[in-house]
Simulated assay, not measured.
Amino acid sequence: MRKSGPGFMFMYKKIVYNLAVGAEAVQSSTYNYLGAAQNAVDGNSESNYMLGSCTHTAGDDPWWRVDLREVHKVTRVSITNRGDCCEERIVGAQIRIGNSLENNGNRLQLLVYEQHRPVKGRFVNIFLPGHGKYLTLCEVKVFAENLAVGAEAVQSSTYNHLGAAQNAVDGNSESNYMLGSCTHTAGDDPWWRVDLREVHKVTRVSITNRGDCCEERIVGAQIRIGNSLENNGNSNDLVTAIGFILSGGTKTFDFKPVKGRYVNIFLPGTNKYLTLCEVEVFAGER
Score class of each variant (00 low, 15 high):
214 C>N: 12
123 F>H: 14
230 E>A: 14
162 L>E: 02
161 H>D: 15
43 G>R: 10
180 G>D: 10
96 R>L: 15
157 S>V: 14
286 R>V: 12
46 E>H: 03
32 N>G: 14
215 E>S: 10
24 E>N: 02
184 H>L: 12
211 G>N: 11
91 V>H: 11
216 E>N: 02
201 K>I: 14
84 D>E: 09
198 E>A: 06
87 E>H: 07
31 Y>R: 12
82 R>P: 08
182 C>W: 01
269 G>C: 14
222 Q>F: 05
221 A>M: 12
56 H>C: 06
9 M>C: 15
83 G>Q: 04
67 D>V: 00
207 I>A: 07
248 G>Y: 01
176 N>V: 06
93 A>L: 15
111 L>F: 00
160 N>C: 12
83 G>D: 10
197 R>F: 11
90 I>D: 00
243 G>W: 08
224 R>S: 03
57 T>N: 02
48 N>E: 13
187 G>E: 04
166 Q>T: 04
32 N>K: 05
37 A>T: 04
92 G>T: 11
261 R>V: 02
93 A>R: 00
38 Q>I: 09
275 T>N: 00
163 G>T: 10
49 Y>E: 05
104 N>H: 04
78 S>A: 15
268 P>H: 04
43 G>S: 05
86 C>N: 04
171 G>D: 07
207 I>T: 03
144 A>W: 03
269 G>D: 15
157 S>M: 13
156 S>I: 10
39 N>H: 07
71 V>D: 11
1 M>L: 12
178 M>T: 09
193 R>F: 06
154 V>T: 15
185 T>A: 11
77 V>E: 09
28 S>K: 04
193 R>Y: 10
210 R>L: 03
212 D>V: 10
248 G>W: 02
127 F>D: 04
90 I>T: 03
117 R>E: 15
106 N>Y: 05
130 G>F: 14
179 L>D: 08
42 D>K: 05
19 L>Q: 10
202 V>T: 00
267 L>E: 08
186 A>Y: 07
215 E>R: 11
2 R>N: 15
32 N>F: 08
249 G>T: 06
146 N>V: 09
224 R>F: 09
32 N>W: 02
80 T>S: 06
64 W>R: 06
280 E>R: 13
188 D>M: 07
60 D>K: 05
6 P>D: 03
280 E>M: 15
154 V>F: 02
216 E>C: 01
176 N>L: 14
189 D>I: 13
214 C>L: 08
53 S>A: 07
81 N>P: 01
233 G>K: 12
26 V>M: 07
36 A>G: 01
246 L>I: 06
231 N>G: 02
